[in-house]
Amino acid sequence: MSTHPILASAAETDAFSADCPTREILDRLGSKWVSLIIVALADRPHYFGELLRRIEGVSKKMLVQSLRILESYGIIDREPKKVGAVVKVCYRLTEQGKSLVEPLFAVYAWAQQNTDTMLSSQEVYNRTVSRRATHP
């Protein structure tokens, strides 16, 4: 068990244990699509089409799957709204979902501040591994 205070305080769950249900939550929340949806919804509720346009590269299928995951965990709510003759679904963060925004923004800020360094490190690593493969 880790000695970090945050991990030590969760004595009833140990994510390092193979049967810990926290692992599933970490796996789901670690998805880039899930985290991007949460960040998008932090600003305001969005309709499905708005999310699809805002999150470049996500397919309709992945967006639907990710929204279902978030809804099943109580992170988002969906509200069907009749707009003319069409029913649109509006997605918003729940109170539980809102509690994720600050920690997630901290990770995003860290990633933005460290992207150049990390990419440079990756280039150095790739060159080193490439040299090792050609010069055993």
Rank of each mutant, 00 (worst) to 15 (best):
E24I: 14
L100S: 07
A85H: 13
S130Y: 05
C20L: 02
L119Q: 12
D116T: 09
S66V: 05
A106H: 10
P136H: 12
A109C: 05
S9G: 05
V107M: 11
L41N: 00
Q112H: 13
G74D: 13
Q96I: 10
L93F: 04
S59N: 12
V89R: 15
G97Q: 01
K32N: 15
E56L: 14
K61A: 09
Q96F: 07
I69L: 12
V87A: 08
M1N: 12
L7C: 08
S99V: 02
E56P: 02
K81T: 10
E95F: 06
R68E: 08
A109M: 10
T115Q: 13
E24R: 08
K60W: 05
A40Y: 05
V129Q: 12
R44F: 03
V124I: 08
V64E: 15
L52G: 00
G49S: 10
I6G: 04
Q113I: 11
A11F: 05
A133K: 10
D19N: 08
V86C: 03
S2Y: 05
A15S: 09
Y108K: 13
D116P: 02
K88V: 07
M118P: 00
W33F: 13
P136D: 13
K88L: 06
L70D: 00
E123Q: 13
Q65L: 15
P5S: 07
V39D: 08
T117Y: 10
S121M: 09
T13E: 10
H46A: 02
K98N: 09
F105W: 06
R28S: 10
V83T: 10
S66N: 07
E50Y: 02
